[in-house]
Amino acid sequence: MDAPLASLRRAIFRLAEQGAALSALYHRARLLGTEHLPLQGPVLLVGNHGVWGYETPAFFHLIHQSTGRYPLGLAERGFFRIPLIRTVLPWLGGVEGTRENALTALQGGALVVCYPGGARETFKRSQGRYRLCWERALGFARLAAQTGVPVVPFAGLGVDDTFRWPPGEERLCVRLSADDKYRMPLVVGMGPLPWPVRLTFAVGAPLEPPPPDASESRLRAFRDTVAASVRRLLTRSAHA
């Protein structure tokens, strides 16, 4: 990488760090269960995504504050068809969510964050608040089985309350692709800012991965176990 591009990358990263810290402050964000976050070695965090994925910078900021580690996020693959995002997102700790990238990251000892619901949770409607869209998600279970890395479940509370869906929400959307997967709802905040709700992120105890030769049914059972853990964390966090 040449010097001007490296300087630009550092400047954008610093700006993003400052933005993430401000977001965490604005939302009085807190991270519970930090004892379940290892300070070194590979770890796969799996949890729910908020509307527009807005909460992610604050979450990553809290993880870095707690552990000194910069998380690596597995981002929705479709976003990497957009030239600017394809260039900038890796500078900010996001990589295309392919199995190869995930394997490389975990084998390198990274703290990897995975949102199995992907765009289906990011672009949810109001009736989808805090509902996991993991029915077709087995990638993280296969990844855990292949690498032998435990899965650490987490839940984000408040992440679906930072924006509101206005009346007529079914009509107020931007279609980013031919299918409904990339229909981005138009949501509103408090004027130019998101609603100042508190963001709470709760981390659960690690779950042992399935064996490398696990059958499809066993992988599905593991996925459902992780999903159940996330739902329990959501419930507990609501009363914490």
Results as ranks from 00 to 15, higher is better:
Ala3Thr: 07
Ala3Lys: 02
Ala6Leu: 14
Arg9Ser: 12
Arg9Cys: 12
Arg10Asn: 04
Ala11Asp: 05
Ile12Met: 13
Phe13Trp: 14
Gly19Asp: 05
Leu25Arg: 12
Tyr26Asp: 04
Tyr26Cys: 01
Ala29Cys: 00
Arg30Glu: 10
Leu31Trp: 08
Gly33Met: 09
Glu35Ser: 15
Glu35His: 15
His36Ala: 13
Leu37Lys: 00
Leu39Phe: 09
Gly41Thr: 08
Pro42Leu: 14
Val43Pro: 06
Leu44Phe: 11
Gly47Ala: 11
Gly50Glu: 08
Val51Pro: 01
Gly53Thr: 07
Thr56His: 03
Ala58Phe: 10
Phe59Val: 14
Phe60Ile: 03
His61Met: 05
Ile63Gly: 00
His64Gln: 14
Gly68Ala: 15
Leu74Val: 01
Arg77His: 09
Gly78Lys: 09
Phe79Ala: 01
Arg81Asp: 13
Ile82Val: 15
Leu84His: 11
Thr87Gln: 08
Thr87Asn: 03
Val88Trp: 07
Val88Ala: 11
Gly93Val: 03
Gly93Phe: 09
Gly93Trp: 04
Gly94His: 06
Gly94Leu: 10
Gly94Val: 14
Val95Ala: 06
Thr98His: 03
Arg99Gly: 11
Glu100Trp: 08
Glu100Phe: 12
Ala102Arg: 10
Thr104Ser: 11
Leu106Asp: 08
Gly108Asp: 09
Gly109His: 00
Ala110Gln: 12
Val112Gly: 02
Cys114Gln: 04
Arg120Gly: 04
Arg120Ser: 04
Thr122Tyr: 03
Phe123Tyr: 14
Phe123Val: 06
Lys124Asn: 09
Gln127Arg: 07
Gln127Tyr: 14
Gly128Cys: 01
Arg129Gln: 15
Arg131Ile: 11
Arg131Glu: 14
Arg131Gly: 01
Leu132Pro: 05
Leu132Phe: 09
Cys133Gln: 15
Glu135Met: 03
Leu138Gly: 13
Phe140Glu: 06
Arg142Ala: 07
Leu143Cys: 12
Leu143Val: 05
Ala145Glu: 09
Val149Phe: 07
Val149Glu: 08
Pro150Cys: 12
Pro150Glu: 13
Val151Trp: 12
Val152Phe: 09
Pro153Thr: 04
Phe154Trp: 01
Gly156Arg: 00
Leu157Thr: 00
Val159Ala: 14
Asp161Gln: 12
Phe163Cys: 01
Arg164Thr: 01
Trp165Asn: 00
Trp165Asp: 03
Trp165His: 13
Pro166Asp: 13
Gly168Thr: 05
Leu172Asp: 02
Val174Leu: 12
Arg175His: 14
Arg175Ser: 13
Ser177Tyr: 02
Ala178Trp: 15
Asp179Gly: 10
Asp179Leu: 11
Asp180Val: 07
Met184Ile: 05
Gly189Tyr: 10
Leu193Pro: 00
Leu193Ile: 00
Leu193Asp: 09
Trp195Gln: 01
Leu199Tyr: 04
Leu199Ile: 07
Thr200His: 02
Phe201Lys: 01
Phe201Pro: 00
Ala202Phe: 12
Leu207Phe: 05
Pro209Gln: 10
Pro210Cys: 07
Asp213Ser: 11
Asp213Pro: 02
Ser215Lys: 03
Glu216Cys: 13
Arg218Phe: 06
Arg218Met: 11
Leu219Gly: 02
Ala221Lys: 05
Arg223Met: 13
Ala227Gln: 09
Ala228Lys: 02
Ala228Tyr: 07
Ser229His: 10
Leu234Asp: 10
His239Ser: 12
His239Trp: 10
His239Gly: 04
Ala240Val: 13
Ala240Glu: 14
